[in-house]
């Protein structure tokens, strides 16, 4: 094991982690703010890249392609929101349905192929894993993605401070109170799901450019990575972050930490095929922490005779 190879891999892990951090910010909107587990993202995490890459391959400019990727994400979020609110399908199932449907749509977008490559030499890609060392700052993948993260965090910070944004937060916090205060909770859930999936699709478009191809399976398990980032952010930065903007930044940092840890375990010799199992286990353990804590602490209190009735 050569420590040099690990250090060499770190910048790449940072850039990739930051891109997944944008995705995790999308997951944060549904999981934390709206209190919904939205599985649409596993599909959207491919849709954005597929739309962006195919449009660029067909001669559209970078900004137009990125915007269309974002719009595609909004549509996917709308589909889930509509199934959930108007059709009364539980949120998790609505997300799974959209995600499944997206698999076919993604294949269609990619002209029936499971994989479409785009070469940074021939197309004006905004990020690429080739631009990580020995390039001017404005081209550096980490720098470019960091700018995206900051802009997205700023926009979200503004948005969730508006009347509409507050209403969406209230919807997630207490739906019956929200309706009593005249808030259209169904509409707000749809808006939140759209926004979340739009951001995830944008992350997908960046990831496809970064790795130089879009793959039909690139979104598989995205929700787990997103949750991992959200949970890591809470565990590590939870006590430091009280402001909404810093909470979002912490989520992005959580994704970076996740990717650095992944690089580390790969460096230790873990088979790359076992990564998803490892991710699932890690997230499962962290999600069960609150319950275990409660049980363990209650046990302690009983032993000490300090338990309350």
């Amino acid at each position: 094991m050569n420590i040099g190879s690990l250090i060499n891999a770190l910048p790449g892990a940072c850039a990739q982690g930051l891109i997944w951090g944008i995705m995790a910010i999308g997951v944060y909107i549904t999981y934390q703010i709206l209190d919904l587990a939205d599985l649409t993202v596993d599909g959207t995490m491919c849709t954005g890249g597929a739309v962006c890459v195919m449009m660029m391959l067909n001669g559209y400019s970078l900004p137009v392609s990125l915007i269309c990727a974002f719009l595609a994400g909004l549509l996917a979020g709308f589909a889930t929101g509509f199934l959930h609110t108007a059709m009364g399908i539980p949120a998790i199932l609505a997300g799974i349905l959209t995600q499944l449907g997206l698999y076919s749509i993604n294949l269609r977008v990619m002209l029936g192929k499971a994989n479409q490559a785009i070469n940074v030499n021939n197309y004006p890609l905004i990020v690429s894993l080739r631009n990580i060392r020995d390039v001017p700052l404005y081209k550096n993948a980490i720098f470019v993605v960091l700018v995206f993260v900051l802009v997205i965090v700023l926009v979200l910070y503004w948005f969730f401070g508006t009347e509409l944004g507050c209403a969406i937060r209230a919807t997630g916090s207490n739906p019956s109170m929200s309706r009593a205060q005249g808030i259209n909770t169904n509409m707000n859930k749809i808006i939140g799901l759209m926004l979340s999936n739009g951001i995830v699709a944008l992350a997908s478009a960046l990831l496809a450019q970064y790795q130089g191809f879009v793959d039909i399976n690139m979104g598989r398990g995205a929700i787990v990575i997103g949750l991992a980032a959200v949970i890591i952010a809470q565990v590590i930065f939870g006590k430091l972050t009280h402001n909404f903007a810093t909470k979002l930044l912490a989520v992005a940092a959580g994704a970076v930490i996740y990717y650095i840890v992944i690089q580390f375990v790969l460096w230790l010799g873990l088979n790359a095929n076992d990564l998803k199992l490892l991710s699932a286990l890690v997230v499962a353990i962290f999600l069960s922490v609150p319950r275990l804590k409660e049980k363990y602490l209650n046990g302690l209190m009983k032993k000490g005779g300090a338990g309350r009735a």
Partner: peptide, 29 residues
């Protein structure tokens, strides 16, 4: 527990209530 949003501040809860019956816009909350 039913009448307030626990994860929001006192002033935010009041601001939500003071906009009851009004459209929720992109103006500051």
């Amino acid at each position: 527990m039913t009448g307030t949003a626990a994860s929001m501040q006192i002033e935010e809860n009041l601001a939500l209530a003071s906009r009851r019956g009004l459209p929720r816009t992109l103006k500051s909350g």
